[in-house]
Amino acid sequence: MKGTNLGELEELVLLMVANLYDDAYGLAIRNEIKDKCNRAVSLGTVHSTLHRLQDKGFVDSKYGTKNPSSRGGRPKLLFKVTQSGERALRQSRELRNQLWDTIPELVFGPK
């Protein structure tokens, strides 16, 4: 397993899992990314990223209990952010904020 850093897409997917809370599965995440970020990612990429996040321990998954009549009768694989996933998200946000705060005013001009 590569380190526990969050890649850009990984972070995005992780945030979406958190946002969707109890209905976070592959296609929903894909659609959410499309709607909110206007960014087309393929289903394969989403699943692959989720798989990677699971390997790193940032998400946990289990199959949904009710068998829907759509989806060819196949259950959803629902994802949930783990504690270490939450920690990773917070860390990355803090790091960002810190870095934003220390940008000299000269660079972007006064706020």
């Binding site: 592959g26 289903l43 699943h47 798989h51 759509s70 989806r71 060819g72 694989l77």
Partner: peptide, 15 residues
């Protein structure tokens, strides 16, 4: 282990 999840997603997207 991923088969149901992926195929289900594909079908839903198809619909």
């Amino acid at each position: 282990s991923l088969l149901d999840a992926v195929l289900g997603d594909l079908m839903e997207e198809f619909d």
